[in-house]
Design a protein around this nucleic acid. Structure first.
Lengths: 233, 233
DNA sequence: ACCTGAACACCGTTCAAGT
DNA sequence: ACCTGAACACCGTTCAAGT
């Protein structure tokens, strides 16, 4: 039925909250979260900025919405996991879920930042945590310990950490080793550490952090600690 | 020398980067970080918005700057600590520093968010971490383990965590226990946990989280885990 | 050297009006 | 019911001009 030679934008599908949110995710994925403005979003969806307001209340609503979309994606991925969780198995069950959530978030690098700025937890996130609590209960955790565990995990439960150091930028290449020596007096311990790490992994030129390895280390540290506290009746 | 009855704003002190940054911190403390705009900041300091650009490059520069101011405040507080850190004492030494950093941050609730959005680590923050690394070395940590430890601690090393749940809002009072029952089917584990926690601490009406207690729990969990990994030669 | 007025490009959002 | 044009208040920032 489609006529063949019109301007061929796609003004076919009518706008909807869902379509707006999906476009917002796409825009953030492709151009970064800072380029997600109501005007650019409208453009992306083939409408005027003001049309968006018929489907979302305000920009904050869009941000709430894209968090829900991503959390939904996580729940879908995590829902495919079917492993035992009774007793000692709780740990690997939780670990696998967290790492799966992480995989999803790695596809949306802007998402953690947006997650953190939401005032209220959205339903799919709540859903995710409910399941996580269930696994810990299977492992013999008291509700009180589960509660503490969730705080201890923090955002790690959802598969991300906020790194304080991200030496990706200033630490690239030859100049940095010279810089290192210059800092050695004021920052002996830090320089000592960097020197050794650079030595251990020479071809990474101070791209010193394998995020995945570090993430798993921190996660296991916490999970192991918690494991020692549960009631192994 | 001051004449007595002029409009008495304070156009005395000339502008400076330092004065701009201090005003920015004051503004954020009093009105929240979202009200820190170049125009409001200029007003605060008794000048026009455009005058600021003589002392700072751009708004990002202001944000970098206020992070440095806060980190400086932390370093000052932490610098007054003088406790042993050799061997097993490393843990309490680190713990005390982290909790001291946290005290400072609690006076600037907007600061964690700004810390997290900085691309590069500022000198005072680097300084803070250098000292922390030193303490862990005193405890017998290899550089490699120190490195992992810093990742495991993440922002906790600076005294804050990003909470995923902040039930301060929606969870206030009578309505919430009704809401709880309504959710019981879809979210059995979460509701179970909340029920018990509300029961344990009835007068907090679901203000279920003593942030300080939870922070210390998570911190100790990590520190204890790390303690078991150091070389106790 | 330090500060400013006018102006620009770009936001989010309202509102009355179109179909 | 759904979309839009014009307009408003407010951003960050540039630039030429003032002292």
């Amino acid at each position: 039925m489609a006529t063949r030679n019109e301007p061929r934008t796609e003004p076919r599908i009518p706008l909807s909250r869902d379509r707006v949110l999906r476009a917002a995710v796409k825009l953030a994925d492709e151009s970064g979260i800072e380029s997600l403005t109501m005007r650019r979003l409208a453009e992306e969806v083939g409408a005027e900025a003001m049309s968006l307001y018929y489907h979302v209340a305000k920009k904050e609503d869009v941000l709430d919405g894209i968090v829900e979309v991503i959390a939904g994606e996580i729940n879908e991925a995590v829902g495919r996991i079917d492993v035992p969780s009774q007793g000692a198995a709780w740990k690997s069950a939780v670990r696998q879920r967290v790492l799966t959530a992480r995989e999803v978030l790695l596809r949306h690098p802007w998402a953690p930042r947006v997650f953190e700025t939401r005032a209220d937890v959205s339903p799919p996130v709540v859903q995710y945590f409910d399941a996580l609590i269930g696994l810990m209960r299977d492992g013999g955790f008291s509700y009180d310990l589960v509660h503490r565990a969730l705080h201890a995990l923090g955002s790690r439960a959802l598969g991300f950490t906020q790194e304080m150091f991200d030496p990706g930028d200033g630490a690239g290449g030859e100049e940095s080793s010279a810089m290192l020596e210059a800092m050695a007096e004021r920052l002996p311990h830090l320089v000592g550490m960097l020197r050794e790490i650079a030595h251990d992994d020479p071809d990474s030129t101070l791209g010193w952090c394998d995020d995945q390895t570090e993430f798993e280390f921190g996660l296991d540290l916490i999970l192991d600690g918690l494991d020692g506290m549960r009631e192994t009746a």
